[in-house]
Design a protein around this nucleic acid. Structure first.
Length: 459
DNA sequence: TCTGGGGTCCTAGGACCC
DNA sequence: TCTGGGGTCCTAGGACCC
């Protein structure tokens, strides 16, 4: 039947209380004791609670204060060592890649493996032995971290299976028995059904997956929307043939910070924006990517949260431009009462490094050339290099998103001008903000960009 | 000591275009 | 004189996940 695999060939692996487990591995004195990672700051929340801490009611996402109230004296509250978690995660993922070339990592502590691509015996006994073996190898390779494993005919079922026997769990759901496992479960245990959807379903008497199965597609769509409704309809029937996709490309990069006390000073807010933009840019440049949409996230003292975004004509990856756009977005928001959190993000990512690979492709459409596109009266600076082409300045134009020859410019009146260089057939590159802090910058007086385009190499 | 930080996907309305 | 019908892009917000 379309929509289902005929064999239980998907493995889902989830590391148990991962951050806490790494801490207990590295500090023997913590073993057997309640450990909380995260929630140490004034406004922090728990990232991971060890199973000993869960016995006292501590949970992920709980405020640090609440966790302190619940846990006994002697509980370790730790800030977190993300480099150590990341290294351990890599060890685990390497083990999984021994099983199959198709491994989809979904977070530091979670991954799917397509066992069909690994040439394994997909009988129930073989799968059970394989699952036990992976768990054992991960335990040894990491020096003591435990994992829960689920194996089934789809991602959703494998994920549900890995939850069923946690911690240190192993569950195989043989093909054909999916509905027997699924139907008694509460709908809230389905991935994608959170508090809001759970409440809506509960309000119409749907509490288990069996209840869900009785509802028509039209009912579910009316209740929770087209995509979610049809997703739930399929889930209740164990219809899920989503492939395992290794190496998903990131779609956005962001950084945000909650302040110990609410901020009110505009200068401080602007310096925080610059700091956040720097963090975003560090990661963008490490990944060799840039994005067109800059988003500012803003949380007030009362936790009301809003976002403001602006899409630019070309991808950006430099901190000054991103911070400048975010700063202007901030200017349009009422800050009365104080700011609890600020965030800066970039989305609409374009991989311009990969773009360069296509630059030699003759099928690529021509980039508009400055000479052809220049209007009468344009000032065309001498081209100082054979490489990047000189931008064309449109005299007298107030350049909000104005195309300038082979470069783009926008943001006049900001005290600086942003230009992107393009050579013939050059794919879209990152936007650079060129230094000219002259507040009276005039279109008749183009910024001195000569020699500055190599300050950050494009490759 | 109420409510982190980094993401993904979806919806809905308006602009704009053919 | 009650005024189409898509399709795409952009913006804002919300649900959800780890």
């Amino acid at each position: 039947m379309h929509g289902v695999r005929s064999e239980a060939s998907v493995l889902h692996l989830d590391l148990d209380a991962f951050f806490a487990a790494v801490e207990q591995r590295d500090k023997p004195s913590l073993r057997g004791r309640p450990v909380i990672v995260g929630g140490t700051g004034g406004r922090g929340v728990v990232a991971t609670a060890s199973y000993e801490a869960r016995a006292y009611g501590a949970r992920s996402a709980m405020s640090g204060g609440e966790a302190r109230r619940r846990c006994p004296p002697g509980t370790a509250f730790l800030g977190g060592r993300f480099a150590a978690y990341s290294i351990t995660s890599r060890v685990v993922m390497d083990q999984l890649r021994e099983l199959s070339p198709l491994v989809e990592q979904v977070s530091v502590d979670e991954a799917y493996v397509d066992l069909a691509a690994g040439g394994h015996d997909l009988g129930t006994e073989g799968l059970t032995a394989l699952g036990a073996d992976v768990k054992q190898r991960i335990h040894e390779a990491t020096g003591g971290v435990r994992a829960s494993v689920g194996i089934a005919s789809s991602k959703t079922l494998a994920k549900i299976a890995s939850e069923l026997d946690k911690p240190d769990g192993l569950r195989v759901i043989p093909a054909g028995t999916e509905l027997d496992v699924l139907h008694p479960l509460p709908v809230r245990s389905l991935p994608g059904v959170g508090p809001a959807t759970g409440d809506r379903l509960s309000a119409v008497g749907v509490r288990t997956v069996a209840d869900l199965h009785e509802r028509s597609l039209a009912d579910l769509v009316t209740l929770v929307g087209q995509a979610h409704g049809s997703g739930l309809f399929r889930l209740a029937r164990a219809l899920d043939d989503r492939p395992i996709v290794p190496d998903r490309e990131a779609k956005s990069v962001s950084a945000e910070r909650t302040y110990a006390t609410d901020l009110t000073d505009l200068g401080r807010l602007e310096s925080e924006i610059r700091w956040l933009a720097d963090r975003v840019v560090t990661r963008l440049q490490k990944d060799g990517t840039a994005g067109r949409t800059v988003t500012l996230k803003f949380r007030r003292y009362d936790f009301t949260t809003l976002t403001r975004s602006q899409t630019l004509p070309q991808p950006v990856d430099d901190a000054r431009t991103i911070a400048e756009v975010a700063r202007r977005l901030l200017a349009g928001i009422d800050r009365t009462g104080g700011v609890r959190l600020l965030g800066v993000g970039v989305s609409g990512l374009a991989d311009y490094v990969q773009g360069d690979l296509f630059a030699a492709d003759d099928d690529l459409p021509d980039v508009d050339t400055g000479a052809d596109g220049a209007a009468e009266g344009d000032v065309v600076p001498d081209d100082p290099h054979p490489g990047p082409t000189a931008p064309v300045w449109h005299p007298g134009q107030d350049v909000e998103h104005a195309r300038m020859g082979r470069g783009w410019v926008w943001g006049s009146g900001l005290g600086r001008v942003t230009v992107r260089f393009e050579g013939p057939r050059t794919p879209p590159g990152p936007v650079r903000t060129y230094a000219t802090d002259d507040p009276d910058l005039s279109p008749a007086d183009p910024p001195d960009w000569r020699g500055t385009d190599d300050q950050k190499s494009r490759s």
